[in-house]
Design a protein around this nucleic acid. Structure first.
Lengths: 222, 222
DNA sequence: TTGATTAAAATCGTATACGATCTTAGAATA
DNA sequence: TATTCTAAGATCGTATACGATTTTAATCAA
């Protein structure tokens, strides 16, 4: 077996997953020595992994204090959804004319998998998979990469706070409506529902975060 | 004087500038030892700088072959301008109602500076400064950061290939039109000219790159 | 008790060193 | 001559080691 990937990539993926699964909370420091010994490597690939995650917005660095899991404010979440809406709209619009039967079937399968999903991190991952399938034929890899990164950033909050509610039922309904519109080739309709879909998530999440920020206001000055 | 920035940040900025000034051509390998000795540091901060630049799209890594300055295809440039148009449109639209007299004056100054600019790298930098001033009041730091990164990526090609032509005169005319529309608070007009402005740059650059790609087709399979 | 002071421990950032991989150039072979 | 082989050099990726900074905790003063 050849060395599968660069060490730093492997470590970055592990830490990314931990953050997405809520095992690492916002603000929590990421000790280089601890991570290094856990993976039985030196700090050097660990630091490179953290620099990578910093560029994805999942961790932040402070001089001589190392890395910590970054947090999102309500404003930032709002901004992220504005960007996502603009970009995903373009992707879907361009992709629909090129969607194949196989793509649509694959998307349908993912919707069903989401229905029977138990863990929140699976839900977040499948959620993105569904969208990514519909966007892929747009052949815009940079746009998709950007959107995926933004999705990842909000996902850890979504899975934590919206999973229990009736949000999932509504979300799945919209997924099915989007898929139907894609099948019919109704670009306008699909894009419109997608925007609604994103706005709904954004509003709930922003409201939730505003609430928690008010509760804990004053702590931030620390 | 305290240590201004982390070493890696400083090195990243230096290499970034070299790439933007055309001192480092696309495909050119970036030797870690060479860079390290030039800055009198070890390879470790150099590698972190390169990982950072990779996340900005300016360099790419290949396993055991290190980093090299990345190149852009015509398709990628086209995609980048599509993304920029979508995002900059939002930024300008939201910023205009909050533009102050001081912002407008600052933008006017930059236009004048561009007129008297000699070097292409100054032109690229000032060009972005002008746009950034008009976008800033939108208060969307992530969006701006994303757009800036995309601007940086195409800038090194723009300055190389469009600087000589009459492109700059046209570009400056559009800058003044955008600024005028901003002064009048005419959001629709400003956004519309901005889109034209970006499309013009995109078309010229894509045409140029398609031409060079055809000339050198066959080399790519290497 | 509370707050200031300082020494010890923890942690960071990076220089040095080294095995692993890749590249290159000359020798051997056809 | 052209091609394959091989060994030396170049370059990469990372473990180890260490000074610098920060944090913690213990001591002392108010």
């Amino acid at each position: 077996m050849q060395k599968t990937v660069i060490t730093a990539e492997f470590i970055a993926e592990s830490i990314r997953n931990e953050i997405l699964q809520g095992k690492r909370k916002g603000g929590e420091p990421l000790r280089q020595d601890e991570i290094a010994s856990r993976f039985s490597v030196s700090k050097i690939p660990v630091r490179e992994a953290l620099v990578q995650l910093k560029s994805e917005g999942l961790v932040s660095f402070v001089q001589n204090k190392g890395a910590a899991v970054s947090s999102l404010s309500a404003d930032e979440v709002d901004e992220i959804y504005t960007i996502r809406s603009a970009l995903e709209t373009i992707a879907l619009q361009r992709a629909i004319p090129h969607l194949t039967i196989a793509d649509l079937a694959k998307a349908e399968t993912i919707i069903q998998q989401i229905d029977s999903t138990q863990t929140v991190s699976d839900w977040g991952r499948l959620n993105w998979t569904f969208h990514a399938i519909l966007y892929a034929p747009a052949k815009m890899p940079r746009l998709i990469e950007t959107v995926e990164s933004l999705h990842t950033n909000v996902s850890r909050y979504l899975v934590l706070y919206l999973a229990g509610l009736n949000y999932q039922a509504q979300s799945q309904l919209e997924h099915r409506q989007i898929l139907d519109a894609c099948r019919q080739g109704e670009v306008e309709t699909a894009v419109s529902i997608l925007q609604t879909h994103l706005e709904a998530a954004s509003k709930k999440l922003v409201a939730f975060l505003n609430e928690s920020e008010n509760k804990t206001s004053g702590e931030k000055a620390k």
